[in-house]
Design a protein around this nucleic acid. Sequence first.
DNA 1: CCGATTTCGGAAAGCCCTTTCCCAGATTAA
DNA 2: TTAATCTGGGAAAGGGCTTTCCGAAATCGG
Lengths: 392, 392
Amino acid sequence: MTDARSAVPSAGQSAGPAANDAAEAKARARSGQPARRAGKGKRRQDADTSRVTLQDVADRAGVSLTTASRVLSNGPRRVGRQLVHRVNQAVAELGYTANLQARAVATGQSNMVGVVVHDISDPYFSSIAAGLIGVADRQRLLACLSSTAAGEAGEREYVALMRSQRARAVILIGSRTDDQAKLADLRREIHAFSSSGGRAVCIGQDLLGVDTILPENAAGAEALGKALVVQGHRRFAVLAGPRGLLTARDRLTGFLAGLAAWSVSVDPRYIVHGSFSRDGGYEAMSTVLAMGGPRPDCVFAATDVMAVGALARLRAEGISAPGDIGLAGFDDILTLRDVYPPLTTVRLPLARMGEMAARLVLAEASADRPRVVPVPGEVILRESTLRLPPAR
Amino acid sequence: MTDARSAVPSAGQSAGPAANDAAEAKARARSGQPARRAGKGKRRQDADTSRVTLQDVADRAGVSLTTASRVLSNGPRRVGRQLVHRVNQAVAELGYTANLQARAVATGQSNMVGVVVHDISDPYFSSIAAGLIGVADRQRLLACLSSTAAGEAGEREYVALMRSQRARAVILIGSRTDDQAKLADLRREIHAFSSSGGRAVCIGQDLLGVDTILPENAAGAEALGKALVVQGHRRFAVLAGPRGLLTARDRLTGFLAGLAAWSVSVDPRYIVHGSFSRDGGYEAMSTVLAMGGPRPDCVFAATDVMAVGALARLRAEGISAPGDIGLAGFDDILTLRDVYPPLTTVRLPLARMGEMAARLVLAEASADRPRVVPVPGEVILRESTLRLPPAR
DNA sequence: CCGATTTCGGAAAGCCCTTTCCCAGATTAA
DNA sequence: TTAATCTGGGAAAGGGCTTTCCGAAATCGG
């Protein structure tokens, strides 16, 4: 048999180190050796040719698989200068990059974090996600997102998927509902996930028995209610968000409590439910306007996004805010800070909440009971609820 | 040795099938068998106790590993009713769920898709991402997001990471820049990714040599420019987005071309660059206003988000739109559809673009050259550029 | 100069799956 | 009845990595 090398024309003539065509390099690396994967089985793909493995690197560097591995995975074990260099060179020449899946299987550890939001195009969620992903990227965690908007029971399923992926953690963002059965299902799934070694964190109501970032919806809404009464409003309407959604409920009851503190009450007919969306706000506002009674002097929409919908509805009717009616929202969505009139709202530090959640993932699980981190909302009074002095 | 079973108190008394404590069940499943992982090595974690493997399932069902695998991975190979049932039962009892990482290693196929956006809290990106994730979830793909906002060279790094993860595909969303060196780097990395078997798709300029969803920024802006001239505007200012960002450049040149079609030109000093953000728009608008000359009668902001910033600036100055000055944006961001005055803009079907990208991932790579799917923008004239009839 | 450490390379046993092969038994065709 | 097929089960060989364990060489202390 002639020298196998001679079969490869101009070996070693290629220009840049990393510019080598991987397939060719691999062929060279193996030349003269008993073909490992020989045999009749057809390759999985043609591209497979260039699938470089650690064994290839080791072969080319003339070291054992073990040594190559030690050089690349920064374990405690040291390797001699010589070999380190040879291995690194082989890596560069072959364009090798470790197979993280295989590594995860071998070590039993993954760096994946599952994130479940209701709808990533909703600025509430995207703001939180931004904070989260920022930290995740920096910590070399892999953030995987899922929207539950489409499918129902999506959260449960995604947690199950994350368990299958042996994800390091799962972060559930968003309101719980009052559906006890579904809650129990979710808890069961989360328990399975945790007891297979994963961390679980939630941003929302503290009902999952896991570490929780808890936005103080009720307290925030209560403070807002009080502030609005102080501003001089008396007859309120509430665009309350979906029935059964706990965040909606918390904000509603908190708000009513705030008013009650000043002995102001709300006619229950003026509490209208609608989805946490622009259209939800628009329609709920329509309902309020269609009501026969005296027009309220202030409307509290459970989210800024709803408030904007309500504003559109008012405008359509030729009703001006705050001139004819006050309007307040909740969340202080960045993108909506410039609507006119500027919305009175309750600010939640959304991005920060995402960051906190990410950090909770990194932190060890608390030994005894889950951590709960309350996040207060800050009332921001802006023009939209300004009581104008009566025209004189 | 006494019956190993007797060591486990009240085995089989637990309530529901899936309610079994996994660790206990696992112990039972193994009872009486030679301990596999015995030996002095300490377990990786305590939680490891409950890490159920396919072998455990097979043991408990009294079948071989092979059979268990065949029941769970729906391959072509059929398994007898009896055994299928026994395996499924064992799965339920142990709360087993396949290790997808291991499966990925074994099959060489993954279902992960990496998505790179500049900033997920920007509604432009979050809208696209929403469409993308919707399809991904439905197709049982795992969408992993990264923001390049934080780190520079983020795209390149993330593609590298995805190569390490042996991801099925990577989707790069957002504008290219005019940085040739960085572009070359990115292309190299993408090439490595593709030739290791991954799909690459991009939403933005067709510069990466991969399948591309191409928003027709120039054409859209051109149409907008023409329309604004038709509306009667003559003296324009442009808030043009970051220097070097191709999307900004395309929109600018397209817009100018549109004006030029009606022989309208723009004083270069009235072309002001700023970031694609609310603040970018605000500041650019400030610059325009600070300019000595005659005030333009219409301002084109390169994105809706910038337009909103500009609007805030105008308002601060007591300048009304469209009364004193017209204002147009680009993108038709959903959340901003209710700002007042409603913005004239160019609509891009953002969510749909995300869906298209996801579908491109699923589709086979085209044999010859990458697919390029142009996406036209639609000019939407709204109040913000309305020429009011001169007061009579 | 010699036993005691320390250093460092490699063989092999894992990690958790899939898939190829082989084979015993059950059907079918002739 | 005798091949000629299916069926369906299991052993074993992967897939690409880490890590344990062993042993050879180098360093050290006295």
